[in-house]
Amino acid sequence: MIRLLEALCLSLILLGVFTRLSGSTELTFELPDREEQCFYEEIDKDVNVIFEFQVIQGGNYDVDVKLISPGHGVLYQEQRKQYDSHEFTTQVAGEFYFCFSNEFSSFSHKMIYFDFIVGEEPPLTADAGAHHTALTQLETSAVSIHESLKLVSDYQTHHRLREAIGRDQAEKMNERVLYWSLAEAIALVVVAVGQVLILRRFFAEKRTTI
């Protein structure tokens, strides 16, 4: 029983450690109009990188994106893109830049989400079980739970992005409906007052002066 508890504690510790060692960077930030923001990452050679982004608020949900290598070569470039994903393998080591530009917009701020995954996640059971073969089944369960949690976290992230976009669109539509309703109410009042004034003229007594 004690050995089983020790094995369970070891697996939970490994789960927490390797979750923190993941090479994924996620960020949501606001990009003002007529501005550009760049981020950089120090990456080694022959490392697989996945870069994805999505505009979740502002304007037509579009942004200019550029990915630059250490030698200032453009690896990826798109204009007025709403969302996209790009995967590549680094040919040289150094600082890789990825920039978001909203310079084409004169008044719309943008809210942008991006995920930058560098390399492969280290195995959950790299050293566990090397000296204790009895932990193999428990380690297998920990790996299965870890993979399921990663999948759930990814689904939750994309669900939150879709919810944020839907909420922003619903608020914009609600604002338009409100303004249109106010305009119709004002038009109805103006028409009603105009009709009353015209009808009063029809029934008004005309006085003749001698």
Rank of each mutant, 00 (worst) to 15 (best):
V189N: 05
T133I: 10
I43R: 04
L31D: 02
S148R: 10
E36Q: 14
G194I: 04
A93D: 12
R162P: 00
D127N: 12
T19D: 15
L15T: 09
E26Q: 14
Y179V: 11
A183I: 05
M173W: 07
F114K: 14
T140S: 13
K172W: 04
D46E: 14
V55T: 11
K81F: 00
S148K: 10
D84P: 10
L149F: 04
E121P: 00
R80H: 12
L124W: 08
I56R: 09
M173V: 07
I56Y: 06
R3Q: 06
L178V: 00
F203L: 13
V17L: 15
E121D: 14
R3P: 01
Y113F: 15
Q137V: 15
G59C: 04
R3G: 01
R207V: 07
L27D: 13
S105T: 07
A7T: 00
Y97F: 13
L151Q: 08
L27K: 13
T90I: 05
A183T: 14
E36V: 11
D46W: 02
G129W: 09
A128W: 14
R20I: 06
H159I: 01
G16Y: 01
I13Q: 09
T133Q: 10
D84Y: 02
E52A: 02
M1R: 01
Y113I: 07
F202L: 12
S24W: 00
V190H: 04
V47W: 03
T157G: 00
A192C: 01
R162C: 07
R80N: 08
Q37C: 01
D127T: 13
L197W: 10
V193M: 10
S141R: 11
A130E: 08
R3L: 12
E41G: 08
Y61P: 01
D84W: 02
R20A: 11
L27R: 13
L124S: 07
S181E: 13
L67K: 03
G94L: 13
E120V: 05
A204M: 12
L10E: 11
S22V: 06
H109T: 14
L15D: 09
C99D: 03
V47K: 15
A185P: 00
G94H: 08
F98T: 03
E120L: 13
T28C: 01
V190F: 15
I198K: 07
Y97N: 12
C99Q: 05
K150I: 14
W180I: 14
E52Y: 04
Q57G: 15
E184V: 13
A183S: 09
G94N: 05
